[in-house]
Write a protein that binds this DNA or RNA. Structure first.
Lengths: 261, 261
DNA sequence: TGGGCTTCCA
DNA sequence: TGGAAGCCCA
């Protein structure tokens, strides 16, 4: 059986907000390492990989590996019934076709409980090669979200150019052209905040084109972390990672567009 | 004639917000006791009873009883034209087919005035027996509203179970099941706030089913009071009461659903 | 910064 | 009609 408790319901809420738009149904794989999820998005273009480490929970108990097929929209709706700082306990058993969610207010005066029906989902577990990337950009997640939203008024595609000086995001369309250049080494959001300083690690410059629709969907993970890490190589899917402090991460993969400007 | 002044326009605004969704047109009965309204909702399922005591106004003058037929949506629209802390004066006369609303800012610099057309409304004044109830729950109104909203994701019906330990709200549907238990004796919202501590008075435990649509409409009265009182007996309409400090109350009655789980 | 409300879109 | 996004208020 699985039984695990996390202190802040808000963490789970934000995680579901960051996934449910891309993926309708997915299997949560439960093991002693924690809870993980890996799924192609609904149009089979992007891939989402989520990890919630067992250490994010206390207690965490998972006797045998379980794969829980969950409708993420329903899961999210039920989580919205918790207050942000409620404690959440998830319980599931191998024999049963529901997962139990128990929310408890910090003072214990309010206890709520939901059973969510599980479903059978074909899981196509794709091995993701852990390749080195030619360029890595760590930057403010809020800035990245803003850039993706802004450039979307111009075109559905965005070009990301990484040099050692900085990273340039650009787009062009009927309205005109636009580009945003973020200098390496300092924060674009708050100059005093070293957490969100832009850091670039580079083997060789890259210039790649991606669909803004997907990047905007990935950016829904912004509330989970102050920073985002973009990892790029030519002809390899972009990796967009939001590390969630003490909890785990959510990673998105998206293949570049080719043969376009 | 009727002529009465209330200090805070916001009080009247909130009252109209709490009624206008349920009742389109209603008679305001004016007497030296104050203003009252009693009406079935548009689908003749629920009943609303409102009282604004004469002491809520100063001055309050009502020479003879008047019954003023008012379209509540129009009344609400006009009230929205007042600033929240404007003083509101209502004037009506038996010979005239309008009610006059005068708004005045606290410093007197702004005075506005509206005439609202009255209408003839058949009033079916139902006697409401003042019966004792088997169970009474006083709880945070915000909590009650939240519970009704939350459980609505599961089903249109809610089951309310009252025991001396606390009150349980539950629902079930396609997604799964859910229940919220509120412990008697402490506040589920703010542990330091004794005003909103849950208080249960019980002759015998009750378990009744109601339509969530109506309860959610009743909960629009939440801004009027920090607490709500639910009074239940088997086979008797639920009474949901919001006492408005120093002003009066708004009461809603709703028959339980029978023959359903 | 978070929550609620309103408006727009599917 | 329900869900999502953006705006406004606390």
């Amino acid at each position: 059986m699985l039984e695990c408790t996390i202190e802040q319901a808000s963490t789970l809420k934000k995680i579901l907000d960051a996934v449910k738009e891309l993926v309708a149904d997915a299997n949560f794989d439960c093991s002693d390492a924690g809870l993980s999820l890996q799924a192609m998005d609904n149009s089979h273009v992007a891939l989402v990989a989520l990890l919630l480490r067992s250490t994010a929970f206390s207690p965490f108990r998972c006797d045998q590996n379980l794969s829980l097929g969950i409708n993420l929209s329903s899961f999210s709706k039920i989580l919205k019934c918790a207050n942000n700082d409620d404690t959440v306990t998830l319980k599931a058993d191998s024999g049963v076709d529901t997962i139990n969610l128990a929310f408890e207010s910090k003072n214990g005066a309010r206890q709520s409980e939901y059973d969510l029906k599980l479903m059978d989902i074909d899981s196509e577990h794709l091995g993701i090669p852990d390749t080195p990337y030619e360029a890595t950009v760590k930057m403010s997640s809020a800035e990245f979200q803003r850039i993706c939203r802004d450039l979307r008024i111009l075109n559905e595609s965005i070009v990301i150019d990484v040099t050692k000086e900085g990273v340039k995001f650009s787009s062009s369309g009927d309205l005109g052209n636009g580009s945003i250049f973020i200098k390496s080494g300092q924060s674009s959001i708050d100059e005093k905040d070293e957490d969100t300083a832009t850091t670039i690690t580079l083997q060789s410059p890259v210039s790649l084109t991606f669909s803004l629709k997907y990047l905007c969907d990935f950016a829904k993970a912004t509330p989970l972390s102050n920073t985002v890490t973009l990892s790029l190589s030519n002809d390899v899917p972009l990796l967009v990672e939001y590390a969630v402090n003490e909890v785990g991460y959510i990673r998105y993969y998206l293949a570049p567009k080719i043969g376009e400007d």
